[in-house]
Amino acid sequence: MALNDTLARVDADLAAGRIPVARQRLRGLVSSYPHEPAPRRRLAEVYRWRKSSYSGGANGDCLEVADGQATVPVRDSKTPTGPALAFSPQGWTQFVSAVKDGELSA
């Protein structure tokens, strides 16, 4: 299926409230068209991103996390249409604990 046809199906899925299906289609498009910005941008719009409570500072080093997913997507707030890392919920919990406990260094 062509890119524009699949994006139209994503729009129909979203209009019908089938958000998980829309996300799945968009992830497929991102994988199939890695250099095309439209699927990445649309996927970023579909997730509900929030700034991490541990982000901040004057230099703009901020992470955003998307809630309500089977995995925990994390991205750099300076490039919202760029790639995101996907952690398992357990992996994310362990990562946050390690950061809080000072077990990781830059």
Rank of each mutant, 00 (worst) to 15 (best):
P83V: 04
S32K: 05
R48P: 00
K78E: 13
P73F: 03
S88N: 02
R27C: 09
L104F: 12
S105K: 15
P89Y: 10
P83I: 05
D67R: 12
E103M: 12
P89W: 10
D101P: 02
G91I: 12
M1Y: 11
V65G: 04
R25H: 12
V10D: 08
D13I: 03
G82H: 04
A38F: 00
R9S: 13
T81I: 04
L43G: 04
S32C: 02
N4W: 05
T79G: 00
N59L: 13
T71S: 13
C62D: 10
L85E: 00
Y33P: 03
L63A: 14
Y47K: 07
A2R: 15
E36S: 06
M1F: 10
L63P: 05
A12S: 11
V30K: 03
L43H: 05
V96Y: 04
A106Q: 12
R42V: 01
L43W: 05
R25N: 11
P89T: 11
A8N: 11
Y33N: 08
I19D: 12
W92K: 01
F87S: 03
G28E: 10
T6S: 08
D13W: 01
V99G: 03
R42T: 10
Y54V: 14
S53F: 08
E103T: 04
E36P: 01
A44R: 08
W92A: 03
A106S: 09
A70T: 14
H35N: 07
D5G: 13
Y47M: 07
R75Q: 03
E36A: 08
S52H: 05
V21L: 14
E64Q: 15
H35K: 06
A22L: 04
A70N: 10
N59K: 10
H35Y: 05
Y47G: 02
V72N: 05
A98C: 09
P89S: 13
R75W: 04
F95P: 09
A98S: 13
